[in-house]
Design a protein around this nucleic acid. Structure first.
Lengths: 129, 129
DNA sequence: CCGCATCCGAGAAGATACTG
DNA sequence: CAGTATCTTCTCGGATGCGG
């Protein structure tokens, strides 16, 4: 592709591997992107960005999430090395979740995005400039 | 919530409105977040961040997208004031899509996120530290 | 009780054929 | 070329069960 035909002035640009075709279909980055931009994945990562929390706490803070999706999302994020799961062998059970170092890297990028969405939400929904 | 009980040191933090409960369930920001973090929404916004493109071009670059989802995603992004649609009354038809100013604001936040995903994808999928 | 696993109906996503 | 209509497939979410 001719760089000169595209307007990239003043704006951030993608790494070379992504410049064309945007994303190979079977590319691992597609999978990762799906995980971290999933409806509940974002909320869980953001919630955990404020510190370690247990299952029931996450369930309350990610308002509206079902237990099934919470379990599924946490499992995916744990497999991806973004979330750390610490289960205590006590009755009643207690499981604490926190971000790994990699998870923190990611949430630091997520926070500005979500903040922007939060600030612009009303204008966007009401169709204002 | 006690700020002191949570580890926010060294990391970006959310605006006050989002600090607790993370997100009200019916909040408009939830809707907006869903739009901009949707599987195809991200790819379309990224592709358009490199400049104006027409329908068929987007279809090729967002590899794997169906026509239905392309139409649906573009319509949503247009309603949200992120994407501008310019239709030419010619035969064969020609429709160009580009980012609005607000869309550029957003894609500037999206690019670092996607770049991170791209760089970390292999390690994440292969379960490496 | 808390943290999950399983089953099932509803709605979203995907494939494909068709049209202006 | 740029979509729409239609049909199929799959994922999500709610209900329920259950071991610790």
């Amino acid at each position: 592709m001719e760089r000169s035909t595209l307007d990239t002035r003043l704006h951030a640009h993608l790494p070379d591997g992504l410049a064309d075709g945007v994303f190979p279909a079977g590319c691992p980055s597609r999978t990762v992107l799906d995980h971290i931009t999933s409806k509940w994945g974002v909320l869980i990562l953001l919630s955990l960005s404020e510190g370690e929390q247990r299952w029931s706490e996450l369930r309350r803070r990610a308002e509206g999430i079902s237990e099934k999706m919470l379990a599924q999302t946490l499992k995916t994020l744990e497999r991806d090395g973004l979330v750390l799961r610490k289960a205590q062998p006590v009755i009643p059970p207690r499981v604490d979740y926190s971000l790994t170092e990699r998870g923190h890297e990611l949430s630091d990028l997520l926070v500005p995005l979500v903040t922007w969405a939060y600030n612009n939400a009303d204008d966007i929904i009401n169709g204002q400039r």
